[in-house]
């Protein structure tokens, strides 16, 4: 993807407009953090995109991100270790950034 094709982002790398997101945009943003997207990543990204369509918000904090994943996929994936392995750093922030969603409001 050329720089001109990349949608506008804020200073923390989050898309300004969630509707400008494409899977290719996700790959580029993930690549910046040396994350190669696998099926396990896409499962969570698709879940987050659906969540955003339905609720027009990102999970507000990391704990609530884990809680929402647990509610949907169960204990096995809804735990912070699993999500931290997929999305290093603060998983909610990293995952929402890759999924083209707004920054979680309560993630410091």
């Amino acid at each position: 993807m050329t720089d001109s094709a990349m949608p506008q982002r804020n200073n923390e790398g989050f898309l300004e407009d969630a509707s400008a997101w494409t899977p290719e945009v996700a790959r580029v943003i993930a690549g910046e953090s040396d994350i190669e997207l696998t099926d396990n990543h896409w499962e969570i990204i698709d879940f987050l995109r659906d969540f955003y369509r339905e609720h027009e918000m990102s999970p507000p904090s990391n704990r609530l991100f884990v809680k929402a994943v647990k509610e949907h996929f169960g204990e096995e994936k809804g735990n912070s270790i699993y999500l931290m392995q997929l999305f290093p750093g603060t998983p909610a922030k990293t995952a929402c950034r890759i999924a083209g969603m707004p920054r979680p409001t309560n993630c410091l």
């Binding site: 339905e54 609720h55 027009e56 918000m57 999970p59 609530l64 809680k67 929402a68 509610e71």
Partner: peptide
């Protein structure tokens, strides 16, 4: 603005 109706509908998911 974002839809408060849609935001609020996430509340049960979070407990």
């Amino acid at each position: 603005q974002k839809s408060l109706e849609k935001n609020l509908s996430a509340a049960p998911i979070f407990g």
